[in-house]
């Protein structure tokens, strides 16, 4: 199974939302990481065939997804960042409705199982209009998984979920990622760390890095420091490095710094994480573009 993006670009007038996005994806979990306006949603909309790319194409097992049409949607599952549901339908009815849209034969067993998976079995007969934001998101995930998709795309899937639900979701994604391409966009780097095999860093529509999590973290070796400072404001005012965390101490503060060079005499190297990666790449590029 192969999902190939060939130089996918999208313009909205003069604004380049996506520029030359090319990558190949196979089974596994891919995280799209990037600031607001990076082009994540545009990419997902292109993949969902909701908008037409200005250039390039997307191939699934060698076939253009736009030509495939309904055949691609048969194996595609998508949960957008913002979506609505029919307030008067119950959770079960909503799933039955989407099951009929997705041409699922014998949907009842699938629906029961999915409701169990997303922890909505008790609310299956409740109207969706009365659901909280988190419950609606769980229902959205269930809808995306209804047709057992080979390509699963999730836009901010854990937004609105409490920590317990977020852990359940991560475990769910890990379970279902076998023999599936799972792409998800998120700002919650702990989700990326926990479940993503690969990370694609996106900014201004362009790919900054497209690699696995380990390699990305490795690239940050020697760039992440911790130091004790007396005057935090002075540290914050410096342009030569970025501060990713501040913890107040009796003598001042313990700060975590992302910098190519040693920022302070008393600074020592520490193990980098994805937050440091985020800070390093997006601030660095922003500075270059200024």
């Amino acid at each position: 199974m192969e999902l190939k993006f060939n130089n996918v670009s999208k313009n909205y007038g003069k604004k380049q939302a996506l520029s030359g996005f090319s990558t190949v994806m196979s089974e596994g979990v891919y995280a799209l990481l990037g600031p607001n306006g990076a082009g994540k949603s545009t990419l997902m909309n292109c993949l969902s065939d909701l908008i037409q790319p200005s250039e390039g194409n997307i191939l699934f097992d060698g076939a253009d997804i736009r030509q495939m049409g309904a055949r691609f949607r048969e194996i595609y599952g998508y949960m957008p960042q913002s979506y609505g549901l029919y307030p008067s339908f119950t959770a079960a009815d909503t799933l039955r409705y989407f099951a009929s849209l997705k041409d699922i034969k014998n949907p009842e067993s699938v629906i029961t199982e999915l409701l169990e998976t997303v922890n909505l079995s008790d609310c299956s007969k409740q109207r969706v209009g009365g659901f909280s934001g988190g419950m609606k998101r769980r229902l959205g995930i269930a809808i995306a998984l209804l047709n057992d998709p080979k390509v699963l795309v999730l836009d901010e899937p854990t937004a609105g979920l409490d920590p317990k639900e977020r852990i359940r979701f991560r475990n769910l994604i890990s379970e279902v990622s076998f023999n599936r391409v799972v792409i998800f966009a998120t700002h919650i780097v702990s989700d990326v760390e926990s479940i993503a095999n690969n990370v694609i860093l996106l900014q201004n529509g362009k790919i900054l890095r497209d690699t696995d999590v380990g390699s990305l973290l490795e690239s940050m070796d020697g760039k992440v420091w911790e130091a004790d400072v007396e005057n935090v404001n002075e540290a914050l005012g410096k342009d030569s490095f970025k501060i990713s965390n501040i913890v107040k101490t009796p003598t001042g503060a313990k700060i975590r710094i992302v910098s190519d060079e040693k920022p302070y005499q008393n600074a020592h190297l520490t193990i980098p994480n994805l937050e440091d990666v985020y800070l390093y790449y997006f601030n660095e590029v922003a500075a270059e573009n200024d």
Binding site: A70, R73, E74, S100, D103
Partner: peptide, 22 residues
Amino acid sequence: CREHSDNVCCLNEVSKFGRRKL
């Protein structure tokens, strides 16, 4: 109209029968 007012169209349109057939 309700598909757009309830913002369900993006979910419908990515389903197999969610376009012309719907």
